[in-house]
């Protein structure tokens, strides 16, 4: 779970004490969850489960990164789950017709980016509210994904299509005397590594580039940003393109893990992503949010799911608990802000 521990350092903002408290509150919640689940079930606290959690969380984290960018501009991206599916199947279809896997995957990510561009243009040119623009894209992308696959899974993919989602770094396997392979160290799955890299990259972009600063400026006060010479339309469109590309990455990673293109994958994932961002302290009113917070939020959701599963809590009860967690965190956040 190395990435959990390093997450808060990505975008540490010593500026705002409230921000730090928020972060530590979320982080403390995360640690408490880990302790509670470890006590409840011995199997929780194992290396292989940690790897599983990180792997499961990576999908929410990818699209959580995208969601955070748009929410910081006081927008929203509801199309993430559908774009994920579309990008994944486009990538799978490309690989199926013989396009080399890396290029096929790149096509998938580009598909996501194009969907994002469309969202951005609808928001900035047609001046529609982001909620509406991306709600439209949510249906369009899902429809296209189902149409081009005939609603059937895309299978028969080359083996290498599964490497990104299924492979691991530093995996150590030893042959046991009884002839069965014994996993000494499960390795760090590529999606987890990718998640860490992207989280750091996006956090640096937010903190250290003018593009990142302009995202906050737009979310904080769009007219002030415009009158300060921020190219508001361009920056906003950029946020949606990146958001779409993140959904694209999530799509290819997920489909690679399944080694199939699933046009029905990712339904309602955008809500998990938005929940992760919000739990991590991103404000839907815009102007506020960090990547470290979103990663913590994603892990809180991921660990809750995993731990509750392990303790035999039904999926339906899990939904109830996660729903309550979202309401409680945002409520606590508001109580603090009212002060």
């Amino acid at each position: 779970m190395a990435s959990i521990d390093t997450a808060p350092k990505y975008a540490k903002q010593p500026i705002d004490r409230n921000d730090l408290i928020q972060k530590f509150a979320a982080l403390a919640g995360l640690v408490l969850l880990v302790i509670a689940f470890s006590l409840a079930n011995g199997a929780f606290h194992t290396m292989s489960n940690a790897v599983t959690i990180a792997l499961q969380t990576s999908t929410i984290a990818f699209i959580g990164l995208g969601a955070t960018l748009t929410i910081i501009t006081a927008g929203i991206d509801l199309s993430l789950g559908s774009v994920l599916a579309l990008a994944g199947v486009v990538s799978a279809l490309s690989a199926q017709v013989g396009i080399p896997v890396p290029i096929a995957m790149l096509i998938g990510v580009l598909t996501g980016a194009v969907c994002g561009l469309f969202n951005g243009l609808v928001v900035t040119r047609l001046k529609l509210p982001p909620f509406i623009a991306t709600l439209g894209m949510m249906m369009i992308a899902r429809g296209v994904a189902l149409q081009i696959t005939g609603a059937r899974p895309v299978s028969g993919l080359p083996e290498s299509f599964g490497t990104l989602g299924g492979g691991s770094l530093f995996r150590i396997v030893e042959m046991a005397p009884n002839g069965f392979p014994k996993v000494i160290f499960p390795g760090i799955p590529y999606p987890v590594i990718l998640m860490a890299i992207l989280a750091v990259a996006v956090a640096v972009m937010l903190r250290k580039t003018s593009f990142g600063r302009h995202l906050y400026a737009i979310g904080s006060n769009e007219e002030a940003a415009r009158l300060s010479g921020v190219k508001v339309d361009r920056v906003k469109t950029g946020a949606y393109i990146l958001s779409g590309a993140m959904a694209g990455i999530a799509g290819i990673v997920l489909m690679s893990r399944l080694v199939t293109g699933q046009p029905n994958e990712g339904v309602a994932y955008e809500l998990d992503a938005i929940a992760a961002a919000v739990i991590g302290g991103t404000s839907l009113a815009g102007g506020v949010g960090t990547i470290s917070g979103t990663i913590i939020g994603a892990f809180i959701i991921g660990i809750l799911r995993n731990g509750l599963n392990m303790n035999g809590v039904s999926f339906f009860i899990q939904m109830i608990i996660i729903g309550l967690v979202i309401i409680a965190t945002v409520w606590i956040d508001q109580l603090r802000n009212r002060k």
Binding site: A217, N221, V288
Partner: peptide, 9 residues
Amino acid sequence: KLNGLSVKM
């Protein structure tokens, strides 16, 4: 506050 400053920043 309306269009000169980003008060959250």
